[in-house]
Structures are given as structure tokens and as C-alpha cells.
Write a protein that binds this DNA or RNA. Structure first.
Lengths: 211, 211
DNA sequence: CATTGATTGTGAAATATTTCACAAAGGTAA
DNA sequence: TTACCTTTGTGAAATATTTCACAATCAATG
């Protein structure tokens, strides 16, 4: 951490905690940023839902991450909405204090810059890779992402329903259903309710690679 | 600009200029970053070309922008390659000097953070919007992007060939050709060699919106 | 200006995906 | 448990896209 004790105390004084239940909206797109939100625990989806257009999920955000930094430094208007996928604990930090820290403390600025940069690289990579792939490739990507980056296990509970998965990978709900069942028929995964087991991660990797 | 005169002088002393001809590769993915590259004039494509996979273009970069900031702050390895689409003038800045500026000068750090953030928002938006659209919607997006963001005119020379356009929007070269010709048949654009005129920008906007 | 390699146009067949229309579970709360 | 709303499964027809195979055109260079 790049902050001194005094700075941490100052940050603590300008910070309040919040709890959100599964399904609740934490922040809505279009609003002006008054607080930075730091996700202490839980899973959140970042998404757009404009008018009658179908929802579009940008990414799933985990533990120990800020929500919407690019919006804060980009143009100060929230570009995305955030909703809790599980029960969630967050911390609201005053924007003015946060910005002052960046201006005053180069190492803190550097750290935030690194965070935003890493997120950019990860997301660009995901978007690009998805842009080239067929539905099975994208779905394989998504399952591997959950398994490796989020749950670190071959067995977990899907954090999204099929509709949401389709919003994430840009396809139709029916295609998700059909493709999942085709993975099941091939023995690559098992699925009961939302509990999924990846039986053959290598095969899934291969499908992801071949697109 | 957030730098003092002394800082600008220091930056100038640690900076060397370079010229690249149309088609030349400026920087290759995978290398460790030794210099920051600032694009003074010209157009550059940011892309990935790994093994026998088809090339994949991330974005077109214009004038007055840094190349690959997220790579620098993300993990210090270049994630993308950069090639000149026109003759190009760049400026190489020593990484150590640049990083020291970030650490020493909060306002400079804030500016760089804003740049990376704005780029993220723009690119996320583009990727998301493309993920949901059919080929005609993506192609309309691309033409409008050239027309509005880059050339600021309804008449310009296409900076990419059809192969490259297909790498940018994640479709096949043939689909690009067919779709362009369908726009021509509908009178929405005119095209002679690479010189394009957008006759009906409103119609193109509508196609972009409807996907 | 002729040759050569790169780029573009195009039809037809093969694939992939969406859309629609229901049926079948699941999950929740009285 | 029932009633009700959400989620999932699935076939068939309609669309969209890719792939392949060439032909045509362009553009650069000796």
C-alpha cells in the first residue's frame, strides 16, 4: 500500500460502509460521481441498460476492487450500472479526498494508474478474443474465466443465469442454453441447478483456443 | 499541461524523435518497454498478430497520443504491436524519467490517469456496441468513427483496406466487401479507390443504432 | 507499359445463429 | 401445497455469416 499511516487514517475518516443484498443496484449509470465505491467482499456485475435495448454486461467484478474508476477520471459521469450478484460489502470514499490523494501522493497515483491499466488490458483482451469467436468459444471462455479467475475451482455455482450470460457474451439466451447442453452431452461439464463442475478443463481450453 | 518549465526541459532532454514510413512497424508486442512513444503526427494501428491466427486490430490511434500506456503501467510488457498507417512522427521518452514524473508530480499523474481512463471508456464502449451488432451495424460504426473522430469530414481516404477492416470488426473480408457494396447500392456512401464519401450520414447513424 | 502481387467483387454451398413458440422445471411466498 | 413468476430446453423456420473458388481490378516497380 502506498499510503502513510496518516493518510490511511484520513481515508478511514472519509469513508463509510455499506451493505447490499443480492440483486440490489449499487450505482446507476448517468449519475455524477460523488463517492468512490470500493468493493470489500462479494461479486458485482457492471452493465448497461439503456431504454428498450437488451441489457449488456461489461464485466464481473470481484472482491478488493474499485467500481468505475475510469468513469471517475474519464469524465466524472458514471458510464455503467453496478448490481450485487451476491451479498456485498462496500466502502464509500469521498471523491474529493480520493482525488487529493492522487495529487499529493505519487505512489498512490501510480498504484491507481496501474489498477486502471491492468483492468484495461484484461478487458481489451477479453473483448477482442470474444469478437473473433463463435458462441462455443465465447462460452468456453466465460466458464474458464469463472473457474480460474473468480472461484479458483472446477466446481462452483454459476453467478449468472442464462439470460445474463447471453448479455455478457453478446448472443441469445437460447444459444447459451443449447451450447451449455452440448457441453454437457460431450461430458465436458456437469450442471445441476446452477452448480457446475468442469470435468475436462483441458477440452474447454482447447475449445476456447480454437474459437 | 501539468508540467513546469523545468520539467518540460527535462522531458525534452530525455526525448528523441523518430520518423516511420507508412506500413512500418513502430513497436512489436511482447517486448519489454524501454521507451514511451508519443505520437506527434500520423495514424497508427494497434494490433495483435500471434502465430497463425488472423491479425486483430484493437484500435486506430491518432495524433497527440501515447502508444500503449496500459501496457506500461499494467505489467511493463507490450501487449500490442503498432504500425504506421500513414507517415508518422513520434517521440521516444525514457521510461524512468516518465515514471519519475508520475511519482513527483500529482497533476501530471492525474492527467495520465485521465487519458488512460478516457481511452478505456471509449474502447469498452466500442467493443460492447460491436459485440451486439450485425456486420452492417459494425461497419456503419466504423465508417462513422473514421468520419467523425478521425477525419472530421464526410469525405476521406479509408485508412484501412478491407482485410484490415475485417480484422477491426471481427468478420470476414468478403463480408466487408459485400456490405460496403450494399451501402453503395443504397446510395448511403460512394467509394472510388479508397476515397469514400458518406452521402447520408443520418442513415448510417440509424443503421449503427439499430444494429 | 508490362508484369506481378495485392486487393476487391461475387455467387453458391455450408455453417452458425436468431427468432418464435411452447413445454417443462424451478423457486418463492401465501 | 398451490399458485405464480422466473428460468431453462428445444425444434423448426428464417437470417446472417463464412468459406471457397475464381475473376477482375489496382498499384507499384523495373
Amino acid at each position: 500500500m502506498a499510503l502513510s499511516k496518516d493518510e490511511l487514517r484520513l481515508l478511514g475518516e472519509n469513508c463509510s460502509e455499506g451493505i447490499f443484498r443480492k440483486g440490489e443496484v449499487i450505482l446507476s449509470e448517468g449519475s455524477l460521481t460523488s463517492h468512490i465505491i470500493y468493493l470489500q467482499s462479494g461479486l458485482v456485475k457492471e452493465y448497461i441498460k439503456s431504454g428498450d435495448q437488451p441489457e449488456c454486461i461489461v464485466q464481473i467484478i470481484q472482491n478488493r476492487a474499485y467500481l468505475g474508476l475510469p468513469s471517475l477520471f474519464g469524465d466524472r459521469i458514471n458510464h455503467y450500472s453496478y448490481a450485487a450478484l451476491t451479498d456485498v460489502a462496500v466502502c464509500f470514499i469521498d471523491v474529493a479526498v480520493f482525488k487529493q490523494f492522487i495529487l499529493d501522493n505519487g505512489r498512490f497515483a501510480f498504484e491507481i494508474l496501474s489498477t486502471v491499466s491492468r483492468d484495461s488490458l484484461t478487458n481489451y483482451h477479453r473483448f477482442i478474443s470474444q469478437g473473433q469467436k463463435k458462441t462455443y468459444g465465447k462460452l468456453a471462455d466465460t466458464l474458464l474465466y469463472f473457474s480460474k479467475a473468480i472461484f479458483r475451482s472446477n466446481r462452483f455455482r454459476l453467478p449468472l443465469n442464462q439470460n445474463e450470460i447471453s448479455y455478457l457474451i453478446g448472443t441469445s439466451r437460447e444459444s447459451v442454453s443449447k451450447q451449455l447442453n452440448s457441453f454437457i452431452r460431450d461430458g465436458i461439464i456437469s450442471l445441476r441447478r446452477r452448480e457446475i463442475t468442469i470435468n475436462e478443463p483441458e477440452k474447454l481450453e482447447q475449445i476456447s483456443r480454437l474459437g
